[in-house]
């Protein structure tokens, strides 16, 4: 009986090994796993196959700046980014990725088409547009568009913020403002210093459904 169970188990393993395909692998520790495979088999579970995540717990990655994704994955991998979504989800996922896989993942998501997750409160959006375009001069808050682009499209190391989930954007602005969990985003600590919660929610509401270029 035991022999039969063992045989069955070994047969299943053999079948499984034989049927394994690198093109559909979910292995995060195999340098040979193509980045596109990782994106579709693993990353898509939270970020969506096309980088347009459904849940605001997870940032949208579609059309994100390639350079920015590479930087973030490196920061997750070496634990320099310590905000909760970083260490809860991403430290583990990124721990064995190779530099090439990271570049491939960044290229994959940069190529996707970003879609707005939906619109919010018009009054809040208007207030957010004002901050995004013109800043809050009285509070020494510069316009967001200066670095992130007129339409929030980002530029190299400055991330795309257009169409980002408002809830995610507010949480990250709070991380920048109130913690040291993202040391590589120190510029944002200065920028967010004087923002109120209301300011953050307004900017985030505007970004979520910002008009395309």
């Amino acid at each position: 009986m035991k022999r039969a169970s063992l045989t069955l188990a070994l047969a299943l393993v053999a079948i499984g090994a034989g049927c394994s395909s690198l093109e559909r692998s979910r292995s995060l520790a195999n340098p040979s796993t193509p980045a596109k495979t990782l994106a579709s088999q693993v990353c898509s579970n939270c970020h969506g196959l096309d980088g347009n995540s459904i849940s605001p717990n997870f940032p949208k990655l579609a059309e994100q700046q390639q350079e920015y994704i590479v930087a973030q994955l490196n920061q997750f991998r070496n634990h320099r980014r310590e905000d909760p979504p970083g260490f809860i989800y991403m430290w583990g996922i990124s721990r064995s990725l190779t530099d090439d896989q990271i570049k491939g993942l960044a290229a994959y998501f940069a190529e996707q088409k970003s879609v707005s997750p939906g619109s919010g409160n018009p009054k809040l959006i208007e207030e957010g547009k004002q901050i995004f375009d013109s800043g809050l001069p009285a509070q020494n808050v510069p316009p967001c568009s200066t670095c992130h682009g007129d339409h929030g499209q980002g530029n190299g190391q400055f991330p795309r913020v257009a169409n980002q989930h408002a809830d995610y954007a507010v949480k990250q602005l709070t991380v920048f403002q109130q913690t040291e969990q993202r040391p590589d985003g120190v510029a944002m600590k200065v920028v967010t210093h004087s923002l109120s919660r209301q300011n953050m929610e307004a900017v985030a509401a505007y970004l979520q459904d910002i008009p395309p270029k």
Partner: peptide, 19 residues
Amino acid sequence: EEAQALPAFARQTGQNCVS
């Protein structure tokens, strides 16, 4: 208290239980 110090599946993904 860090993500790796967890039961088997968490060690496998390196993620926190709440994932």
